[in-house]
Amino acid sequence: MRKQLWIPLVLFLFIYSLSIMIQEESITIALTEKNESPSWSHLFGTDWLGRDMFLRTLEGIQLSVTIGFVTALLSTTLGFFLSFIASIHSVLDHIVSWLIDLFLSLPHLITLILISFVLGGGFRGVVIGLMLTHWPVITRVLRAEWLQIQEMPYVQMSKQLGKGFWWRTKHHFLPHLLPQMMVGFTLIFPHAILHEAAITFLGFGLSAEEPAIGVILSESMQYLSSGMWWLAFFPGVTLLVMVVLFQWFANTWKHYIERDRSYETYFNN
């Protein structure tokens, strides 16, 4: 159990911190070494300008993970506030439910492209676009949980025992919602990374000079037919590995916080 939790997290953080340490200046154009296939001096090969693909991939990973993290955080926060609003009054609940249905009825990618395009793309456009498309799923879960716990006899009783709204929020509602929020966060994270890569690949996301995985993949399209497979293969696999590592961690983490530990602590005392 412990190993299942720590191995993916440590690997993930190791690759991420490795990518942070890389300076952008170390990726230099070296036309004498262009179009080289993978070797010990260039693990992932070089591109048509002689840039080292290993460094470029790590740079891209750094950007993708940052975007994923920021987006997941923003979406979860937005979901929490909307579900809170829905719990106040049934009219507000109808509005929030209607918004959820509206956003769920549109394909993610279409809305994402629209929002990102309107905001002019770039880091800001992508993050806002991802945030505005990834909140409905977690809001739906949190809203249901919130409505359910409000109806529980022990919560109604808390009011009659003289406890105010904030006390109930802190002691009844938040401890109940927090596991859901954490699970929601970990599930949005890889989703957001993949969508960022997709939208950048299509050309509506990050601009071409930024070293994002999506940019690398779309550029490599032109060279794939001439046999330069390493331009797309290694960045793609690295992105996949990062997503799988995080999902591995997320799944174990989910099981870990959902487990009933009441008996454990009782018998250990």
Binding site: M152, P153, Y154, V155, M157, Q160, G162, G164, H172, P175
Partner: peptide
């Protein structure tokens, strides 16, 4: 009637005690 932030002077004991306490 209940005063704000005070326990209600009329307390109800529920039929099902397991629903009346937070299971966590």
């Amino acid at each position: 009637v209940q005063n704000k932030r005070q326990p209600h002077p009329v307390q109800l004991i529920w039929q099902h005690p397991e629903q009346a306490v937070n299971p966590k």
